[in-house]
């Protein structure tokens, strides 16, 4: 048995991703903001456009970093949550590999990105494919999957680096393909830093 994606998606899709009076998703104890994707993309593109050429890489790294920080803490909330323990953990037979499968199924269930693992060498490398991530229809030039880059890196850190919160920045994620540049899918490769 391994983690079955459809089982996870069906179970998690039932949960209402709605903030409580403190602005947190009760199941994961993480902050929720219900904002349109276009807002995120518009913000990213404006900040990129405003940056001088020599600082664009820095701005790009900042956008990835923001997603990473969010993904690292939210990801930990997800994989240690009761619902994850109930739905995903009984199907886990390959430890971290299955936890990551479950995490990407959760990603899909909540509409963050229809994504999944294509290749995984434990603690070494992971290739993720995504079909409708936030920046897939970004108007910017070049590869723009900042959010998923940060999240893939965060999830791999959670799975294979030092236990939370000491494992940050062990791995790095590069985007190699993108729907926004005309590819059929987005491809994200996580490797050791």
């Amino acid at each position: 048995m391994t983690v079955m994606r459809d089982t996870v998606v069906k179970a998690l899709a039932k949960i209402q991703v709605q903030s409580n009076e403190k602005g947190l998703i009760p199941e994961y104890e993480v902050l929720v903001n219900l904002l349109p994707v276009s807002l995120l993309n518009a913000f990213s593109e404006r900040i990129m456009a405003a940056a001088p050429p020599e600082r664009k890489a820095e701005v790009e790294a900042g956008l990835v970093r923001a997603a990473y920080e969010c993904g690292y803490h939210t990801g930990c909330g997800i994989i240690t949550s009761d619902i994850f323990s109930e739905v995903v953990m009984p199907m886990v037979t390959e430890d971290e590999k299955d936890i990551l499968r479950g995490a990407f199924a959760a990603f899909t269930a909540w509409g963050w990105a229809k994504s999944g693992i294509v290749q995984l060498k434990e603690a070494e490398k992971m290739i993720v494919r995504a079909f409708d991530y936030y920046e897939a229809d970004s108007g910017g030039q070049g590869l723009r999957g900042f959010m998923l880059r940060g999240l893939c890196q965060a999830f791999f850190d959670l799975a294979y680096a030092e236990p939370y919160p000491d494992g940050m920045d062990t791995y790095v994620c590069h985007q190699t393909k993108g729907i926004e540049v005309g590819d059929a899918y987005g491809e994200f490769v996580v490797v050791k830093k």
Binding site: R5, A105, G116, I117
Partner: peptide, 22 residues
Amino acid sequence: GRDGFVIESAGSSSRVNIEELG
């Protein structure tokens, strides 16, 4: 993928729904 994630597909089949097949 082993988890049922449809990584890639080509062609089409009127007989089988590819997503459900995964």
